[in-house]
Nucleic acid binder design. Structure first.
Length: 587
RNA sequence: CGGGGCGUAGCGCAGUCCGGUCAGCGCACCGCGUUUGGGACGCGGGGGUCGGCGGUUCAAAUCCGCCCGCCCCGACCA
């Protein structure tokens, strides 16, 4: 490609909107342009890199038996009504009407379509197992897109779907993906870790997320350096410090004027926060069939802990959870700041599993300015649900090894889910087994967002001068800078490399050397050649790797060979990063 | 959805408090010339409904109201 023909330009300055480095550089280098919040155009360079990522995904999917298909972005809502997700999913779903006023859905994902396909195509156990995948646009109307391509609303995803006769078959395909995903990320030179995750809106029994650890990530991970335990904060568990065993004491009302927060209260009564009960009021939307009901939730954790809303949602099997309004709190007979589980009406009480083991806590008295001492679960009040609803925090003890855990931020670049029969049962996607019995197909679903992956690779590989692409992801292999006097020789090298299948940018623009070098650094093509009068005088070409400072002088007659060899070495170097990862469900 | 910020030329910004030569600067872009190994220089030039609508006023980028858009934090989410 001749740079004089480029559609995109480089920018000396990044848009003020861009904050994270991958966003700034991808825009400045001309890989992407923004159209709206969380909506981006891929420019020619970006498109080429995305194609490379997607081809790596295809390769790995094919190698575990995947067959590529292509499913629509626009779905009739009926299908989503059948699985109930039309009702369960909120604003995140893009909905519209077609000309006949039929409800339509913009695909957030494709489980429904797969299950529909399966019920039409698969009749017999002889047709299983299968693995299908596609690379397609999704629309998820995320409340807060951010950080360039890292979190967007419209995005392309590779998603695969495994189809099996039973759990054992699913487990096999799940494990195959577990490894294939590491292969994909390694082939993009992106370090990732797999952590167990919440199953979220997908439903299902087991899920892993592939996290790229970076400060710009929006997920928080808890991990133990001692044993290697790692989990998303959403589901991370921890060993809760046991409360001292003590005799249950009689309940006692105390005046606590002005002590509305746990800290105030602990100070005022001179007790540790672990001797208090923290009340959190939420309103949950819970789906009952096609109906939605709102329930007032009174959640209680010990004063030294925080409520983890994901855990709470899961404990409640709720669709949505929001903080309760003051008037709602008052309506159930509670007093904000002095709330108590004792004497509530119409509230669903959920207590953390550390509460029943924690005697004689201080809790509100449901009366302005008063608390109770020595409140005991079981004696003074009961809960509808007792579950782990406390959030793990830095320093909490690892559930595995008991050592204090650290936290890290990460971006989820991929995920794998054991869906089971959630969708196939809902849609009647059954097969006949050997005994002629009808059974639902067992599904798994596995996704990788290509744009997010590109952004993460950019985030990982850059310096103050620009991007530094791994050979496998680079839009071009070689970048030739023509300086004065180098025109003819450069064009000859360009043509010869192209004939040999090397992808080359030729900077034939009428620009000063400084501009050309700056742009070459910004674009981050792995190999740079500089052809000039100066180098030609010595019958040579300057050769430089983007990631290194060293410049070499290569004789003209050897340059093609050296470039090809280097390109292959860089490809090989990346493939060396692919290795077998231990599969650890416990983690 | 809550909190904060922003919207003036393709990009980065000044001007807005205090209404009136404020339609401006740098980069980018076009022409000519010089320059040519790390974002060159000179001369000349093109480009903006000042996010939109409404209001106040003799006069609005500037004041008021409503709306739209974008970014950040939180909630939420893959």
């Amino acid at each position: 490609m001749r740079m004089s023909n480029f559609f995109s330009q480089t920018l000396r300055e990044a848009p003020a909107d861009a904050e994270v480095v991958s966003h700034k550089l991808l825009v400045r280098a001309g890989f992407i342009r923004q159209l709206g919040a969380g909506i981006y155009t891929l420019m020619p360079l970006g498109k080429r890199s995305i194609d490379k990522l997607e081809d790596i995904m295809r390769d790995e999917m094919n190698s575990i038996g995947g067959q590529e298909i292509y499913m629509p972005v626009v779905h009739p809502a009926d299908l989503w009504k059948e699985t109930n997700r039309w009702y369960e999913i909120g604003d995140e779903m893009g909905r519209f009407y077609d000309k006949n006023n039929r409800d339509m859905v913009l695909a957030l994902t494709h489980e429904e379509v797969v299950a529909d396909l399966v019920r039409k195509e698969v009749q017999s156990y002889r047709q299983l197992p299968r693995l299908i995948y596609h690379i397609q646009t999704k629309w998820r109307d995320d409340p807060r897109p951010r950080a360039g391509l890292i979190r967007v609303r419209e995005f392309t995803m590779k998603d695969s779907y495994s189809l099996d006769i039973d759990e054992a078959g699913l487990d096999k395909q799940y494990r195959a993906h577990y490894q294939a995903y590491f292969n994909i990320f390694n082939r993009c030179d992106l370090p990732t870790v797999a952590v167990k995750s919440d199953v979220g809106m997908m439903g299902g029994s087991l899920a892993h997320e592939y996290m790229y650890l970076t400060a710009v990530g929006e997920d928080t991970l808890l991990f133990s350096e001692t044993c290697g335990y790692m989990a998303n904060r959403q589901i991370a568990t921890f060993q809760k410090p046991a409360a001292e065993k003590e005799k249950v004491k009689p309940i006692e009302k105390v005046a606590t004027p002005g002590a509305k927060t746990i800290d105030d209260l602990a100070k005022f009564l001179d007790v540790p926060t672990s001797k208090t009960a923290k009340a959190v009021f939420m309103v949950a939307k819970i789906t009952e069939g096609q109906d939605e009901v709102e329930k007032f939730i009174f959640a209680i954790v010990r004063g030294d802990m925080e409520v983890n809303e994901t855990k709470l949602v899961n404990a409640l099997k709720a669709k949505e959870l929001r903080p309760a309004l003051d008037e709602e709190i008052i309506a159930v007979g509670a007093v904000p700041g002095y709330a108590s589980p004792i004497g509530l009406k119409d509230a669903l009480v959920v207590v953390d599993d550390a509460i029943p083991d924690s005697p004689n806590l201080v809790a509100g008295a449901n009366e302005d300015g008063y608390h109770f001492r020595n409140v005991n679960y079981g004696r003074d009040y009961e809960a509808e649900i007792v579950a782990d609803i406390a959030a793990a925090q830095e320093g909490d003890l690892c559930p595995n090894c008991g050592e204090p855990m650290s936290v890290s931020r990460g971006v989820e670049v991929g995920n794998i889910f054991k869906l089971g029969t959630r969708y196939t049962e809902a849609l009647g996607s059954n097969y006949l087994d050997k005994d002629g019995k009808s059974k639902p197909v067992v599904m798994g679903s596995y996704g990788i967002g290509s744009g997010r992956l590109l952004a993460c690779v950019a985030e990982e590989h850059n310096d103050e001068n620009g991007l530094i692409w791994p050979m496998s992801v680079a839009p071009y292999h070689v970048h030739i800078v023509i300086l004065r006097g180098g025109e003819e020789a450069a064009k000859k090298i360009y043509s010869e490399l192209k004939v040999d299948g090397i992808e080359v940018i030729l900077d034939d623009r009428d620009e000063s050397p400084g501009v050309k070098f700056k742009d070459a650094d910004l674009l981050g093509i792995p190999i740079r050649l500089t052809v000039s009068e100066r180098s030609l005088k010595e019958n040579s070409v300057e050769f430089k790797l983007r990631r290194e400072d060293e410049r070499k002088s290569i004789p003209l007659e050897k340059i093609i060979e050296i470039v090809k060899k280097t390109k292959n070495e860089l490809v090989e170097e990346i493939s060396q990063k692919v290795s077998v990862m231990p599969y650890d469900v416990a983690n």
